[in-house]
Write a protein that binds this DNA or RNA. Structure first.
Length: 541
RNA sequence: GAGCCCGUAGCUCAGCGGCAGAGCAUCUGACUUUUAAUCAGAGGGUCGAUGGUUCGAUCCCAUCCGGGCUCACCA
């Protein structure tokens, strides 16, 4: 998904488009027009997306950035106002739990509670744990060519970008508390403060009881872990805000116009909005998307480790298919499991075909998901066969290599070749991998009976004597003769035995065609390996 | 408890104001030196229920029933 491609300004199309990114973009446009009507200057539109960097980027991270990017590009068709996507990392959060997948756990444990950017990097490669996680996040986003403006929360707090908004929160402390307290349990109400001081003594982000706040001096006074009082400024990175106030304050401080979030944030949105207003901002346009479910219908989360990882998806299908899956119905909770992959790939192929069809109008093109997925510039390549067909071919012929697959493909699309259809070539690899990992393990190979064994040996010998025969009919004749010679009656039992013993399935491709494509010599090898019991043994593992 | 999503053919889902659709599955036929692929065709749905808006509702609105998720401690 190359980004940065310039999006053509086409308000005529964008205003009428029905695809959801356009609906969102029109919300932003209305916001801009509202501001202009009030006499405000609008020099750019800022979209935001945020991450908790205590874990590795995951499939949801991809979805969030991709979706926000699509809205941004849709807006680019509507308005010449420049846009920017801020990707902010909450790297000032205190470390609450030592992640499972890091080394130096003792060191990490000793640093619990400190900001992620104040903890040494357990991998030893970066300035801090937070820096390392940020680097991984950026590498991940760069790998997809997203166009974004990276921000570190630590940097934002320390550099003073938030100072005005923070002082504002301090000066309206009671108002903030009035918003927050009703949402808290009784116990938490006793100790709650929107400000979390970073202890000058321990370096930890403290959930401390605040005993006094001084708007004039810009400080709060709180109880340290040992019960003594300590006073710190709220500015300059000496305090961070609790997450809900943080969300709202950040909107105000950075002038965010648009943000998406998962369903779990939805109930808190009114709070974010209230804090944003208190902090002197106007809450951004927002969009809630549904969460992904695993095969049991449960929410996918990093900690549970259920559902698909992004690497898993990209092992079996191209990224376009993943992008399409993210594009479709963001407000519906969808199952994210392996079996949705083939359909996503074929939907993509169909949509790409429709996009390029002569009868497709410009209006339809801009509504087509592939327009969004490819940032307004879908590739010209077409796919003469579907992924489902490739999977069928791989299954039917027990294919483990590209040559056999291409032999079949050319039977359907004579013009196709790995050189002319690089996308299809990748799809062939994906299909083989999918077959190897999901279909093949389900196959049930059986050993040959004595009668079959003799016939198979005969067939293998005949094949070996055929040299480089390529004529499907001639090869099929040999297969037929051998079956007759060994008195299989009806003859279909003979073919059935071939499929069951060689392919581990009860049906398959026309055997002569397969052997001709696969090579008679190679087929002979296949037969001998089957007779040696290799396939039965492999299946038993 | 509050909020959100879903309920359409056996299964998975698309459609979201104008004669009910796709893929898979099933069945029939063609082709075949096979049971695959391919091709042709068929069956199968009071579009969860009830009211309302409309010339017209699967689609919009309301209520209800059923299923699921999220939040309620922390981010």
């Amino acid at each position: 998904m190359p980004s940065g491609a310039s999006i053509a300004l086409r308000p005529d199309l964008g205003l009428a488009a029905r695809a959801w990114p356009f609906e969102e973009a029109r919300k932003i446009l209305a916001r801009v027009e509202r501001k202009l009507a009030k006499g405000e200057k609008v020099t750019e539109v800022v979209l935001e997306t945020g991450y908790g960097p205590s874990g590795l980027p995951h499939i949801g991270t991809f979805g969030e950035v991709a979706r926000t990017t699509w809205v941004m590009h849709a807006f680019n068709t509507l308005s010449p106002i420049p846009t920017r996507l801020i990707a902010i990392s909450d790297d000032m959060d205190g470390l609450r739990r030592v992640p499972d997948n890091v080394p130096n756990k003792d060191m990490m444990t000793a640093n619990l509670g400190r900001p992620l950017t104040s903890i040494p990097d357990p991998f030893g490669t970066h300035e801090s744990f937070g820096h390392n996680m940020n680097a991984r996040l950026r590498a991940f986003l760069d790998n997809f060519n997203f166009d974004y403006d990276f921000r570190s929360a630590t940097q934002e707090y320390k550099s003073g970008v938030y100072d005005n908004a923070l002082l504002r929160v301090l000066s309206k402390y009671d108002e903030v508390m009035k918003v927050m307290l009703p949402t808290l349990g009784e116990e938490r109400q006793q100790t709650y403060s929107p400000f979390l001081p970073v202890s000058p003594r321990s370096g930890k982000v403290l959930l401390a009881k605040v005993v006094a706040h001084d708007p004039d001096r810009g400080t709060i006074t709180y109880l340290e872990e040992d019960g003594s009082e300590e006073t710190v400024p709220v500015t300059g990175g000496h305090c961070k805000l609790q997450w809900k106030p943080d969300f709202g304050m950040r909107w105000a401080a950075l002038g965010i116009d648009y943000e998406m979030y998962g369903k779990e944030h939805y109930p808190s949105a009114p709070l974010y909005n209230a804090i944003c207003k208190i902090s002197g901002g106007e809450p951004p346009e927002q969009f809630m998307f549904e969460l992904f479910l695993d095969d049991k219908g449960e929410k996918i989360s990093k900690s549970k480790g259920n559902g698909l990882t992004i690497d898993e998806w990209l092992t079996y299908a191209p990224r376009e298919s993943l992008a399409l899956f993210m594009f479709q119905k963001p407000r519906v909770a969808k199952r994210l499991t392996f079996d949705v992959i083939p359909k996503a790939v074929d939907d993509y192929i169909d949509l790409l075909e429709k996009y390029h069809a002569n009868e497709t109008s410009e209006a339809d093109r801009i509504d087509n998901p592939v327009w969004h997925i490819h940032n307004g510039n879908p590739p010209a390549e077409r796919y003469p066969v579907s992924f489902a067909l490739l999977l069928t071919l791989a299954t039917a012929s027990n294919a483990h290599n590209q040559n056999v697959m291409w032999g079949f493909i050319k039977a359907y699309a004579p013009q196709a070749s790995p050189e002319a259809n690089p996308g299809l070539a990748k799809l062939v690899d994906f299909a083989i991998r999918y077959y190897e990992d999901f279909v093949r393990p389900e196959k049930k190979f059986r050993p040959a009976t004595e009668k079959e064994h003799a016939a198979f040996l005969d067939l293998a010998a005949k094949f070996e004597a055929m040299g480089d025969a390529r004529d499907p009919k001639a090869v099929q004749d040999v297969v037929y003769e051998v079956g007759k010679a060994h008195q299989f009656e009806p003859l279909r039992d003979w073919f059935g035995a071939l499929y069951e013993v060689l392919f581990g399935q009860t049906a398959g491709p026309r055997f002569g065609s397969f052997a001709a494509l696969f090579g008679v010599k190679e087929t002979a090898v296949l037969i001998r390996r089957a007779l040696a019991g290799e396939f039965v043994a492999a299946a038993a593992e």
